[in-house]
Simulated scan of single mutants.
Amino acid sequence: MNEQKIMLKVITLGDSNVGKTSLFYNYMYGKFIYHRSCSIDFCSKELMIENQHVSMMVWDTFGQERFHSLGYAYYRGAHCYTLCFDIHNEKSFDSLEKWMDDTKTYCFESIPFILIGTKSDIPRTDKSISKARIEQWCKNIEDQGIIDKVHYFETSSKLSKNITESYNAAAKLAFKHYNKNQNPPITTPAIVLLEEVKPGHCC
C-alpha cells in the first residue's frame, strides 16, 4: 500500500437556496439538516482509492455566493467541483454556465465537475426542468469539449437519494485530475471509506 496521503479538494457551486448545504451535510453526516450560515466551511473524509490513502476535503459556500465573495481562496487548489441546481428552479439552471465561467476565472487550470440536480423528492411540474433539457445541456457541454462526459445525478437530501453516489463520482474525477500530472500515475479509482468526518472552517 502507498502510505503517502493525497489531499483532494472538491468545491460546491450553484445558486443560493438550491440545497447545496443540505447535500453537503447529508454526505458528511448521513442525515438531512436544514442549515443557513454566512461563512465558508469544509469537512474531510478519509478514503482509500485503489490502495491510495486520500483525504477528500469538501468545501461549501454556506450562502457566501449571495454576496459574490467566493474569490480565489475558495477555488484555489480545487481538483473537482459539484455544480448544483434545483430541478424546479429555472434561474438556477440558467446560472450553471455562469458558475462554470467562474472556475475559468479563478482556477489556474480546467477542472472536472459533477452535475447535480437537487430536490428530486418533489414531483416535477410543467415549470420544472425536464430530463430531456438536462440531457441536451449535458450534450452541449460535451460537444464543446469542456468535459468528455458530464456525470449527472438527481438527488434528494431529505431521502438521502444519490448523495454518496454523486460525491463518490466527484472523488474519482478529483483523483484522476490529481493523478494525471503525476509521474508515474498512481492508480485507477475505486473508493473505500476509511474514517469518520473531520470538520474544518475557513473564515
Rank of each mutant, 00 (worst) to 15 (best):
D121M: 07
G117K: 08
N168W: 09
D94T: 12
H68W: 08
H79I: 03
P185G: 04
K198Y: 01
P185F: 03
D102W: 05
F85W: 10
I141H: 00
G200N: 09
C202P: 01
F93T: 01
A169K: 13
E65C: 03
E142K: 09
V58I: 15
S16K: 06
A169W: 02
Y27A: 05
K119A: 11
R124A: 11
M57C: 12
Y81G: 02
N51Y: 08
A73T: 15
G117M: 03
T82E: 06
I33R: 09
T103I: 03
K176Y: 01
S166M: 09
F42Q: 04
A78K: 02
H79E: 06
D121Y: 07
E46D: 07
Y74F: 15
K139A: 13
L115I: 06
V150M: 06
E65N: 03
Q182H: 12
L23E: 00
D126N: 14
F93R: 02
K119I: 06
P199M: 08
K158D: 01
S120H: 08
T103W: 03
D41Q: 14
Y34C: 03
V54K: 01
A132M: 13
P184T: 10
H35R: 11
R36V: 09
Y72D: 09
I11A: 03
N181L: 10
F153G: 08
H35W: 04
S44F: 07
Y74N: 08
S128T: 12
C107V: 08
F85K: 07
I163P: 03
D102R: 07
T118P: 00
L47Y: 11
I122C: 12
Q64Y: 11
N51Q: 12
F175S: 04
F67Y: 15
D15T: 02
D148K: 14
V58R: 00
D121A: 04
F32K: 07
V58W: 02
T12K: 01
M56P: 04
T187E: 13
M7R: 10
N181Y: 11
I191T: 10
H53S: 11
R133H: 11
E154M: 08
G145L: 04
S55C: 12
I129G: 01
C107W: 05
A174C: 02
I11T: 10
S37W: 08
Q144A: 14
E3K: 08
K119Y: 10
E90L: 09
M1K: 14
R66V: 01
V54Y: 00
L23V: 06
I33V: 14
T155C: 15
G145D: 02
D143A: 14
R124W: 00
G14C: 04
L115V: 12
S110N: 15
A73P: 03
H79S: 08
C84V: 13
E65S: 05
S95N: 15
A169G: 01
Y34T: 14
D143V: 00
K198P: 03
S16T: 07
L194W: 07
P199Q: 06
Q144C: 13
T61R: 05
A73C: 14
I6C: 09
I134N: 02
Q182W: 07
K91W: 03
I6V: 15
E165P: 01
C138Q: 13
Y75L: 05
I49K: 05
M48Q: 05
K20D: 02
S156P: 03
S128N: 12
S69G: 13
E135K: 14
I129T: 11
S128A: 09
N179P: 00
C84P: 00
C203R: 10
S22I: 02
M1A: 13
T82Y: 04
R36A: 11
V58F: 13
D101G: 13
A78N: 11
F62T: 15
